[in-house]
Simulated scan of single mutants.
Amino acid sequence: MQGEIKLKEMNKDEREVYIHYLLLADDSTEVIKDYMNEGDMFAIFFKEKLVGTVLFTFLSKETVELKNIALEKAYRGRGLGKATIEEGLNLYKKKQYQKMVVGTANSSIDNIAFYQKVGFRMDYIKKDFFHQYPNEIYENGIKAQDMIMFIKDLTE
């Protein structure tokens, strides 16, 4: 699957066009607009078709954050998310980053399992993170309140 996806880096001036993809993974337009022009954003192509986006930001010289990854619903569960993350891990490992982090809501049960399946480990919790969002978020009957942070060592 990894060879079948391609990541195309986007300039900051073309990112606004892809906000509908970012909204698939983050419920707040206001929050997205705060971070969408940071870091590296890529369009995800599968067999030449645009199927999503991924955004990486930089926390330090050693740490890159997987800030947002979103695939169209029809392309989920097919290994494309995993392949996209593997591409990102390889890219930033080559650029000498030592760690990649990613966060997801306490209510995002599928994401919690997914990040562990692709090799991330739970690291810490940002309590009350989702209180900054303008609207309450519920998933799986659970209110999103805390951000669970995961980490992956890129030096292994």
Rank of each mutant, 00 (worst) to 15 (best):
M1C: 12
Q2G: 14
E4T: 03
E4S: 07
I5L: 07
L7T: 06
L7P: 08
L7F: 02
L7R: 05
K8A: 14
K8E: 15
M10W: 08
M10H: 03
D13K: 15
D13I: 13
E14N: 13
E14R: 09
E14F: 08
E14Q: 11
R15K: 15
Y18P: 09
Y18G: 07
Y18A: 11
I19N: 13
I19D: 13
H20A: 09
L23G: 03
A25I: 12
A25R: 13
D27G: 14
S28P: 09
E30G: 04
V31Q: 09
I32M: 02
I32T: 02
I32F: 02
D34K: 15
M36N: 00
G39D: 02
G39C: 01
D40N: 04
I44C: 05
F45G: 14
E48M: 06
K49G: 15
K49S: 15
L50V: 13
L50H: 12
V51W: 12
V51N: 13
V51P: 07
T53D: 00
V54L: 01
L55F: 07
F56E: 07
S60T: 13
K61Y: 15
K61W: 14
T63Y: 12
V64A: 13
L66T: 02
L66V: 06
K67M: 07
K67V: 04
N68R: 05
I69D: 06
I69N: 04
A70S: 14
L71N: 02
Y75W: 08
R76C: 05
G77K: 10
G77E: 06
R78K: 15
G79C: 03
G79I: 02
K82F: 00
A83K: 12
T84W: 02
E86I: 03
G88E: 05
L89T: 10
L89P: 02
N90W: 14
L91H: 07
L91D: 03
L91K: 10
Y92R: 14
K95D: 03
K95C: 06
Q96M: 11
K99I: 13
M100Y: 11
M100F: 11
V101S: 03
V101C: 02
G103P: 00
T104I: 00
T104N: 09
S108Q: 08
N111K: 09
N111D: 04
N111T: 05
Q116V: 04
Q116I: 02
V118P: 08
G119W: 04
F120R: 02
R121H: 12
R121I: 15
M122N: 11
D123L: 00
Y124Q: 01
Y124K: 03
I125D: 00
K127I: 00
K127W: 01
F129M: 05
H131M: 12
H131G: 11
Q132R: 01
Q132F: 05
N135D: 15
I137M: 05
I137V: 09
Y138R: 06
N140Y: 09
N140G: 10
I142T: 03
K143V: 10
A144W: 01
A144V: 01
Q145K: 10
Q145V: 11
Q145Y: 07
D146T: 04
I148V: 12
M149D: 03
K152Q: 06
K152H: 10
D153C: 08
D153T: 07
L154Y: 06
L154S: 11
T155P: 13
